[in-house]
Nucleic acid binder design. Structure first.
Length: 828
RNA sequence: GCCCGGAUGGCGGAAUUGGCAGACGCGGCGGACUCAAAAUCCGCUGGCCGCAAGGUCGUGUGGGUUCAAGUCCCACUCCGGGCACCA
């Protein structure tokens, strides 16, 4: 009687075994070569959803694979446990975010365990843990000392739905990436991390990272480096001459070569010098325009729709084009941003479409300074070409290409001390303060006499009190808690107030991977240099592409800054050596989301098919990098396959009767060869993340074994045993429970996950026969079995022989292509 | 608009370098077992023509290179993603 395959019975048993045995715990003095395999730590939103399961299955497979390959694998887990959902739940139902979060973490931990994922649970971190808060604050203070954390008043993104400010990275198409509310502009005093200090290195290092090109491109776009020139446009007097008593208007351009075509200049509506440079007769129009712009939402303003003439207004003032000496009008327009460059531009309608549109709408002059090609029928010409109309007494660019003209123009500016070469970045500093309760408090106090003071290290962590009222007010609930708010100044002991804003949760995720390295959590630093050196950088990071310019950029910044400050080794500049971004799981073509109520619950699948079948289905359905629709999962087929494996491998199987012994036959040798081929194939496929074809490999192999077992001669005992044992070893990372159970049953309770990964014998991979295709005019007409080392002449002879009866070569051949041993093609 | 991906049977997909298109799975059809069903096992399964042997067409569209193209080149269509007043 064959024992039944009962995943519901064996899986929880093995999950407990892995957790208790410590097989996947690693100590910092472990002598094995170390590997750091990390899946992005999850926000604890309750039981795992199918997207989580996909992510953590890939990670778990790698952990188990590397472990069997003799490496000491750091496989940690933790929770990104600060954040809005817990606080919103508190507002709605009154349950404290801490309790809410603890319950959700419990659920998520249980589901991760239930799908068979293994971790060193001793190293767990959670963002909201006071111990973790302490070190988030400690790092903030180090950054503050170094000038990398600062407070500033700036126009910021306000999300009315989340009732907090957002970082630029969290605004997508003018909307909040979380709540999708349109974002408003507000001037607020906020905390920033000075990520712009690292813009150049963040850009440069991308080249050396083994990351998807897509993600690198997104980061490059986000950082947005541009090279150009910055120079001053003198303000013109009433009679058109440059005034010496007024500071020139600074502009930034990437096209100094086109300066002779500058026919007007434009300031951003929010530019600091608008009032100064507006003439009395235009004051009313300017004020009206600015008022109108300020009420427009970001989305409207970003939109290119709408009449161009409404997008700007004349200031009444003129400036001087230093290249030509001519006087040109100065406008205000909303297409110029106050936050980029100098907030003012020289407008060259001939070479810039935005300037072209504006010039056309306002009846301004257009001068081409780059000759467009003959067939050019567009408006502004932005391509390369010889300069025209670009000469003065002191500078002649005519005839030069764009690059040469640029360099020459900049040189001219520098010589006359009018301006200089300038590199600009699109990336802004990271706005990190949030007006919310459920986040890490910013450890600063405001003293009436001493001003802004950092909280001393020995007073950390600053933890939010429990007895606060949760109301969506737009200010942190901490603002209304007198006990938290009122404190004393660390320097003068006088009355002081605490900062009530908390940190963006992306701060927490910017260093958790460093904390995981630290085994002894009692030391007085968040991580020791030795601990970090032992495991960092992360060898394989796995997560969603949605973090391409959020988490992945911030974490890189943190690593560089901590490196410069000496808290991690100086040569550790990049945290994640290899990155894999897995695709999303969708349902019925749409995005799966809680709000749509179409989440697939892995619990139900595990209950019906078992965790191994679910893991196998995840791996089988699609290449890991691609998005997948849950409807395409083939759970029945995967479960059926596991049952086939079970019946083949379980010791008391009815399938296995009448085992042959003695000398192996050709059929036996064929199976033995297939075993080695499988080892070779699966090892390669695992290394290149070809899990879907690896599953196909397992299935094919098992099909072969079934034929072998049911063949007339019957299976050869030792051959079959080896064939099955190898299969179980190779399947251990993908379907760990069934592999463990069958191995234990076959080997007296031994553990398959403690086995060494099998190695293929190269001699067994050499085939003695290969199918050679014989073509006539590129069409397959015959196939011949030949030796792999057949020579050219013999191959042609064999091919001719194969076609001899068909008469297809009777007319003679014009050409013969021989690619032994795979193919011979006759051209007739 | 610009920059990346992608398009292969009824479906998900496979095809390291240009060399047998459709591995593997799902679904479908047929058979075995069974009183029957489920489960299981075996076989067939791209279209068209043909009793068959076999032939013929076939990897989004149109061209091209080559003895040979899913794969390389040119042009285009559609789908997905990113960027998009950043001067």
């Amino acid at each position: 009687m064959t024992a039944a395959y009962r995943p519901d019975e064996i899986e929880p048993r093995w999950q407990a075994d892995w957790r208790d045995s410590g097989l996947y715990q690693i100590d910092n003095d472990d002598p094995r070569e170390s590997r750091y395999v990390l899946s992005m730590y999850p926000y604890p939103s309750g039981p795992a959803h199918i997207g989580h399961v996909r992510n953590y299955t890939f990670g778990d497979l790698l952990v188990r694979f590397h472990t069997m390959n003799g490496r000491g694998v750091l496989s940690p887990i933790g929770y990104d446990s600060f954040g809005l959902p817990a606080e919103n739940a508190a507002i709605k139902s009154g349950v404290h975010p801490r309790e809410y979060t603890a319950a959700r973490m419990e659920e998520l931990s249980a589901s991760l365990t239930r799908i068979g994922a293994v971790y060193d649970w001793r190293r767990i971190v959670s963002s909201h843990d006071p111990d973790y808060i302490r070190w988030s604050q400690w790092i903030f203070l180090r950054f503050h000392e170094a000038g990398l954390a600062y407070r500033d008043t700036a126009p910021v993104n306000w999300c009315p739905g989340c009732q907090t400010v957002l970082a630029n990275e969290q605004v997508v198409d003018g909307r909040c990436e979380r709540s999708d509310d349109p974002v408003e502009r507000r001037d607020m005093t906020q905390w920033f991390y000075k990520i712009t200090d690292y813009a150049q290195e963040l850009l440069d290092n991308l080249d050396g990272l083994d990351w998807p090109d897509r993600v690198k491109t997104m980061q490059r776009n986000w950082i947005g480096r541009s090279e150009g020139a910055e120079f001053g446009l003198p303000i013109a007097d009433d009679d058109g001459t440059a005034r010496n008593d007024v500071e020139p208007l600074a502009v930034y351009t990437t096209r100094p070569d086109t300066s002779f075509g500058m026919t007007f200049a434009v300031m951003a509506p929010e530019h600091a010098r608008v009032d100064e440079l507006t003439t009395p007769d235009q004051a009313e129009a300017v004020a009206a325009f600015r008022a109108e712009v300020s009420t427009r939402s970001e989305i409207d303003r970003l939109s290119t729709e709408g009449a161009s003439d409404k997008r700007g207004v004349f200031t009444g003032s003129h400036v001087v084009n230093p290249f030509t000496g001519t006087t040109i009008p100065l406008y205000l327009a909303d297409y110029v941003l106050t936050t980029y460059g100098t907030g003012a531009i020289m407008a060259v309608p001939g070479q810039d479409q935005r300037d072209w549109d504006f010039a056309t709408a306002h009846g301004l002059e257009i001068i081409r300074t780059v000759a467009p090609p003959e067939d050019f029928d567009g408006e502004a010409f932005t391509g390369d070409g010889p300069a025209i109309n670009s000469a003065s007494m002191t500078l002649d660019l005519n005839g030069m290409g764009v690059a040469e003209a640029k360099a020459t123009a900049i040189e001219w500016l520098v010589q006359r001390e009018l301006g200089d070469r300038k590199v600009n970045f699109r990336i802004r500093d990271w706005l990190l303060s949030r007006q919310r309760f459920w986040g890490c408090p910013i450890p600063m106090v405001y003293c009436e006499t001493c001003g802004l003071r950092p909280v001393p290290d020995d007073q950390l962590p600053i933890v939010a009190p429990d007895d606060v009222e949760f109301r969506p007010t737009g200010e942190s609930p901490l603002t209304y808690h007198q006990g938290f708010l009122n404190t004393t100044c660390p320097d003068c002991d006088g009355p002081a107030k605490r900062e009530t804003d908390t940190m963006d949760t992306f701060v927490d995720s910017s260093w958790y991977f460093l904390r995981y390295c630290q085994d002894d959590r009692s030391v007085d630093v968040p991580f020791t240099l030795d601990a970090v050196r032992k495991f960092m950088p992360v060898d394989q990071y796995i997560g969603g592409v949605e973090h391409a310019v959020l988490h992945l950029l911030y974490a890189r910044f943190f690593t560089m800054a901590l490196s410069d400050l000496g808290h991690v080794p100086g040569d550790l500049r990049e945290p994640f050596e290899r990155l894999f971004t897995q695709g999303m799981v969708r349902l019925g073509g749409g995005k799966m989301s809680k709000s749509k109520g179409n989440l697939v619950a892995p619990e139900a699948i595990v209950a019906e098919h078992g965790a191994d079948a679910l893991r196998l289905a995840i791996l089988q359905v699609k290449p890991p990098a691609e998005d997948v629709d849950f409807e395409d999962f083939q759970l029945d087929g995967c479960e059926r396959f596991l049952k086939r494996v079970w019946r083949l491998a379980v010791p008391d199987s009815e399938l296995l009767t009448g085992m042959r012994s003695g000398e192996p036959t050709d059929a036996d040798r064929g199976i033995e060869r297939a075993r080695h081929v499988l080892i070779d194939r699966i090892t390669g496929e695992f290394e290149r993340w070809a899990y879907n074809t690896a599953v196909a490999g397992f299935m094919s192999y098992v099909n072969d074994l079934y034929k072998y077992v049911q063949s007339d001669d019957g299976p050869h005992g030792p051959t079959l045993a080896a064939a099955i044992d190898t299969l179980l070893e190779l399947m251990a990372p993908t379907t760990p429970h069934i592999a463990a159970e069958l191995w234990a049953r076959r080997h007296d309770g031994a553990h398959v996950h403690e086995r060494t990964w099998p190695v293929a014998d190269p001699a067994m991979l050499v085939v003695d026969q290969i199918t050679m295709v014989v073509q006539v005019n590129g069409k397959v007409r015959a196939k011949v079995e030949v030796a792999p080392d057949i020579d050219e002449a013999a191959a042609e002879t064999a091919a001719r022989a194969a076609l001899a009866d068909s008469g297809q070569l009777d007319a003679g051949t014009r050409k013969v292509i021989v690619r032994q041993p795979k193919l011979v093609n006759f051209v007739v």
